[in-house]
């Protein structure tokens, strides 16, 4: 049997105050210890928002899975990830007739939200599901020819540590990253789900 090479994963972490983070900090730390994963702390690398376009494009070329990891800020990403999109995803690189650099790569958001899961539905006070709210990024992925995966999310993030939910979430995160790396995630099934969390075990194929 010929084994395909491992997928190279790029995590773009955006959190403007990591020293106060209870969720994203520990998640990033856990990810950093996994082999074959590149973790970029965008606020650390570009504290003045002077994003190096060439370097970021090079990074994209060198990876197969692109993950935006961030807390949900106003139903979207913290500002630097928007800046990153505006600068790095240039015409002729990421889109347009010659912009094919990202074709075929996987894209997903790994996020934490302050609101409860129950609030993220038509009847809840947030009225939309997380996947619906992230549609600009789903469409961004689509325009760039990337395959979009639904978000990996932690709800009620502000109380996750106090309520002892964080450990389980970190374990699932590690599972997900290893499955992506080793090509064990059932991409086709996953693409149609609302999120990656609930059925993660079912999505991971045995070797």
């Amino acid at each position: 049997m010929t084994r395909k090479a491992a997928q190279r994963i790029l995590i773009l972490l955006a959190h403007p105050s990591l020293d106060r983070s209870e969720v994203n900090g520990p998640l990033a730390q856990a990810a950093a210890e996994i082999e074959g994963i590149t973790l970029v702390d965008l606020y650390a690398e570009y504290p003045d928002f002077q994003i190096d376009i060439d370097r970021e494009q090079q990074r994209l070329l060198e990876h197969d899975v692109i993950i935006f990891q961030h807390p949900l800020y106003w139903y979207s990403t913290p500002a630097i990830l928007k800046e990153w999109q505006d600068l790095v995803l240039e015409h002729g690189f990421a889109y347009g007739s010659e912009g094919t650099a990202l074709h075929g790569k996987l894209f997903l958001n790994a996020l934490s939200a302050g609101g409860a899961e129950a609030a993220y539905r038509a009847e809840g006070y947030n009225h939309f599901t997380i996947r619906e709210l992230l549609q600009p990024m789903e469409q961004m992925a689509s325009l760039c020819g990337m395959r979009y995966l639904p978000p990996f999310a932690l709800f009620g993030a502000r109380t996750a540590v106090d309520e002892g939910r964080i450990g389980h979430h970190i374990d699932a995160w590690i599972e997900l990253l290893k499955a992506l790396r080793d090509r064990k995630l059932d991409i086709e099934t996953a693409q149609n789900l609302a999120g990656l969390n609930s059925d993660l075990n079912r999505l991971i194929k045995e070797a």
Partner: peptide
Amino acid sequence: ERGWTPPPKHYTKDM
């Protein structure tokens, strides 16, 4: 002056 470069004027024809 790299950055926030708008796409070419008629780029949507390609899309």
